[in-house]
């Protein structure tokens, strides 16, 4: 049973990746490549559908499918890979995606949590060995910030605001 942090709570993950054992209608996270290969089958399934993006995948490709998706996962394979932050903000802001936005990969560690949450990620599949309690604390590592950011982090003070308040 995989545990994930969702909205700062450690919970059992109901979602499965392709290849992981589950019932036919269990919530499934497909890769973008899998969705691309067989969109009809994925979009027609009865259970919930999520898509996992690699850093090179473009969120624009998902745009038309987003109403059908309950989850998007973005990969953070290691320290230094920063494209997922842009993916997250675009999904939340430009495409108004309101489902679960999940960060996955070996780079999902406590020292990135504040940035991830500010970019709209509300669920974290922590890298192996990461202490969930430390990650929860890191969610609010700063209580002030300069830039606009997602509502996942509530700042006590902020300097610059967006034209439209973030969801």
């Amino acid at each position: 049973m995989r545990l994930i942090l969702r909205q700062r709570e450690l919970v059992a993950d109901a979602w499965r990746y392709a290849g992981e054992e589950a019932g036919a209608d269990a919530p499934l996270i497909a890769t973008l490549a899998e969705l691309r290969t067989d969109p009809e089958r994925h979009l027609a399934r009865r259970g919930a559908l999520g898509v996992r993006l690699t850093p090179v995948d473009r969120v624009e490709e998902l745009a038309t499918h987003l109403p059908r998706l309950a989850l998007v996962a973005c990969e953070f394979p290691g320290p230094g890979e920063g494209r997922g932050y842009s993916q997250g903000r675009l999904l939340r802001e430009r495409y108004g995606f309101a489902g679960e936005l999940r960060a996955v990969g070996a780079g999902v560690k406590q020292d990135l949590v504040f940035h991830l949450a500010r970019c709209g990620f509300d669920a974290l599949e922590l890298a192996p060995g990461e202490d969930p309690a430390a990650a929860v604390r890191a969610w609010q590592r700063y209580e002030v910030g300069y830039q606009p950011g997602a509502a996942q982090v509530v700042l006590r003070r902020q300097r610059f605001f967006a034209a439209t308040p973030p969801a």
């Binding site: 320290p79 920063g82 932050y85 504040f114 940035h115 910030g145 300097r159």
Partner: peptide
């Protein structure tokens, strides 16, 4: 300086 400090999106650039 302020806007770029601890920027959520642009702290892990190429």
């Amino acid at each position: 300086r302020q806007w770029s400090s601890v920027h959520p999106e642009f702290t892990y650039l190429p």
